[in-house]
Amino acid sequence: MDLHDPDQPVLITDLHDPDQPVMIAGPAVAPDVAVVSLRRLHGRVDAAGELARVRRSYRGPLLVEPFSARDLPAVVTHADGVVVGGAWMQDFQLLRAVARTGLPVVVQRATAATLEEWLSAAEYCVAEGNRDVVLCETGTRTHLPHATIDLELVREAGRRRPVFVDVSAAPDLAVAALSAGARGLFLGEDAEPALVAEVRAKAALLGPLVRDDEPETIPDARAAIDRIDAALATLLERRAELAATVQRLKPVGGFAGRDPRREREIVEAMARRAPRLGEDRLARIMAAVIEAGLEASEERDLRIQPLANRS
Rank of each mutant, 00 (worst) to 15 (best):
V64M: 06
Y124L: 04
V267C: 11
P251Y: 06
V83F: 12
V134L: 03
F255P: 03
T140F: 03
R303T: 04
T13L: 13
D172S: 08
V45W: 00
L173T: 01
R248L: 09
V84T: 06
R53W: 01
A52P: 02
A176I: 00
E189H: 12
L95H: 07
D5N: 15
V196Q: 13
A157R: 01
G139Y: 06
R160P: 00
R273D: 14
D213I: 00
R281P: 01
E241A: 14
W118F: 10
P18Y: 09
L307W: 05
A244K: 10
D150C: 05
A271G: 11
A231W: 04
A127P: 03
D212T: 11
E241L: 12
A221E: 08
G257T: 07
G60F: 02
D212L: 07
Y58T: 02
V84A: 07
D71F: 07
T140Q: 12
G253C: 08
R300A: 14
Q90E: 14
H42W: 06
A288I: 07
I12K: 15
F186P: 01
D212Y: 03
G86A: 08
T148Y: 09
A121Y: 07
P27G: 03
A87R: 15
L232G: 09
F164V: 04
A269E: 14
R70W: 02
R40E: 11
E50N: 04
T234K: 01
R303E: 13
P219I: 02
W88M: 15
E128F: 02
D220T: 02
D32M: 00
H78D: 09
A147Y: 10
R161V: 02
A47F: 02
G188W: 08
L236Y: 11
A69C: 01
Y58N: 05
D259P: 05
L115T: 12
V126L: 06
F67D: 09
A244R: 15
G181R: 02
R96D: 13
A233W: 10
A269Q: 13
D91H: 07
